[in-house]
Design a protein around this nucleic acid. Structure first.
Lengths: 339, 339
DNA sequence: CTGAAAGCGCTAACAA
DNA sequence: TTGTTAGCGCTTTCAG
């Protein structure tokens, strides 16, 4: 019932606490017989060292924090998978924090993490965040940060992202080649690097195909309910009947577009072609199968974590030069079938 | 750069460390002016208390552990959402551990959690687990556990589940009423309560409709790759051409069945009707729309966490009587359209 | 090779 | 109302 500690082991073995500690940590200056004796008893009694005592003493928490907007989302849950994998490999623990895209929460979490609770942070910024003082603060406190996917560009640390501009370009070009001439762009907050990058790719592709960019065809997600988001898409489609293509910058907007089209009786890909950033495993089972730009979410999490652990273990500051840009993949399916 | 601690605050204010600590904890025996002075400086210097020192002293970690099979799964990510919500409301932190359905990992994690790292655990057991000594061990160490969805029945603690038997019954009955006579049941390890419960519901429904239960129509998932799972389903369908309905006990098996049917050229719901346990938001966008049994995943997480925090805050042992059985919902869509 | 002692940062008795 | 002291469980000098 009561947790067992070094003192108890030491008493039982007629050794000092220090020796027991060293034996369990496999220090060179302890004799093999003693180590064996200590380990045997520790095993027998199922001794588990108190992590907080150890953290306090060593000034190392063996824990990282992961701050993400949400978890009920394929991209982030795959990323967590990658992160957890690396963390476990390093005998680290993972604290998870969800901002729900709320700047205030992100700020509060950053403060909490500045206390020594974690040895490092992996973060994907909330769409509401415009000020980043809280993240600077974390850094000033000596907590290494690696950003993934949604980054705060100005901070001189590593960022693991995907080729947003190129992907936005490719997606748009794909629609153009499929015959679209009036492409709506559903995007996220332009505070976010991913939102900006993808949109710029979209604009550039239009320009390269001599299509005038029309700002009124850009719909920025407003963090509303699903029903509201769908309603906004329907409104856009209703007022702009010439729209023949939709480029959705995030997964939910692609599926919301499906619903909007269905509600309006527009056929996909006949009337409107749709492409979306998505990590949905079952994109191919949709009606019709959804053409996607798929990000290597698992790898993003994994690589970001690797960079962080390198910094933690070597006790070195992270350089922006360690940043990684992974490639997203265009997977063509029925929703953009050429006319 | 260097973390600031109570000592530094105390020096700066010409107070004792104890007084500063009490002021920050808003103790009644500190004068208002002192409290104000202390808080002002703490704010100015962005003081954050060292959580591990505090944990060590108070023997409370303000942290819970969540152990689940995987996160890239709608059910679990929604549950985490609910858990995180409640944890944040209680000013608690959430450590996350993924077993990947591996018993060895679950065992290792249980050991780690027995060290005082967490004040309580929320757990959904791995399908491989047959022995539960590691969980008993946790409990013996005084760590309260609440199970959710996949429970270890024998342990006298609270469990938050859904009405698996009834849902399995309803799902099967729905297929029978749609005209199916040869219903395959794709399920998970029968070590799992959810696997057993749903299957028993299936068997009972068959019996009540005078259909002989045929064990060879039951396919137990073997934790393989997606391609392998699909292949196994195809094999079943090929060798048993009379199968006209599939009841999938977990989400992945439903979508895998779609792929299997597509590969074999079987039409849904014409040749084969499919119903599946699923928390897919976009079940209605599938081709054809998937009839589902949908579990209240978010609520499950939330309620399980609530029970845990009640126990933690009142320092009371959790009683099995606090268990909750939530209702799943049958949502009829095109994949089971009557013939 | 092992032990004694100090101390990580905080909180809680006990004094004053 | 505040200070002094001890100690949570562990690691790490420093001695021997």
């Amino acid at each position: 019932m009561k947790p067992i500690n070094l003192k108890k082991l030491a008493q039982e073995l007629n050794l000092s606490v220090a020796t027991v500690s060293r034996a369990l940590n496999d220090r060179y200056d302890i004799s093999q017989p003693t180590k064996d004796r200590v380990r045997a008893l520790a095993n027998k009694l199922n001794y588990e060292p108190n992590p907080y005592a150890s953290s306090l003493r060593r000034q190392k928490s063996k824990t990282i924090g992961v701050v993400i907007p949400e978890v009920a989302n394929h991209f982030f849950s795959l990323a967590i998978n990658g992160i957890e994998e690396v963390a476990r490999g390093n005998n680290y623990h993972v604290l998870i924090y969800l901002t729900h895209e709320d700047y205030q929460r992100e700020l509060a979490m950053a403060r909490l993490l500045a206390s020594g609770r974690v040895d490092g942070v992996l973060l994907s910024v909330a769409s509401e965040s415009e000020d980043f003082g809280h993240l600077e603060f974390l850094r000033e406190r000596g907590i290494p940060i690696v950003f993934f996917d949604r980054v705060y560009d100005e901070m001189p640390t590593a960022k693991v992202t995907t080729d947003d501009f190129e992907s936005g370009y490719k997606a748009t070009e794909h629609l153009l080649e499929a015959g679209c001439r009036h492409i709506a762009h559903l995007t996220v907050s332009q505070n976010l690097s991913i939102g900006r990058g993808r949109k710029e790719g979209y604009i550039q592709a239009l320009a390269d195909h001599n299509i005038v960019f029309d700002e009124s065809l850009v719909l920025v997600s407003a963090q509303e309910t699903k029903a509201q988001e769908i309603a906004r898409i329907q409104q856009l489609l209703a007022t702009r009947p010439e729209v023949d293509g939709i480029f959705a910058s995030v997964e939910s907007q692609a599926t919301n577009s499906y619903e909007a089209c269905r509600n309006l009786g527009r056929s996909i890909p006949g009337d409107i072609k749709i492409i979306g950033f998505s990590n949905l495993e079952i994109a191919s089972l949709l009606q019709p199968a959804l053409t996607t730009i798929t990000q290597p979410a698992y790898s993003i999490g994994k690589e970001a974590a690797k960079i962080l652990f390198q910094a933690i273990s070597k006790n070195r500051v992270i350089s922006p030069a360690q940043s990684l840009v992974l490639k997203s993949e265009l997977v063509v399916r029925a929703s953009t079938l050429g006319s």
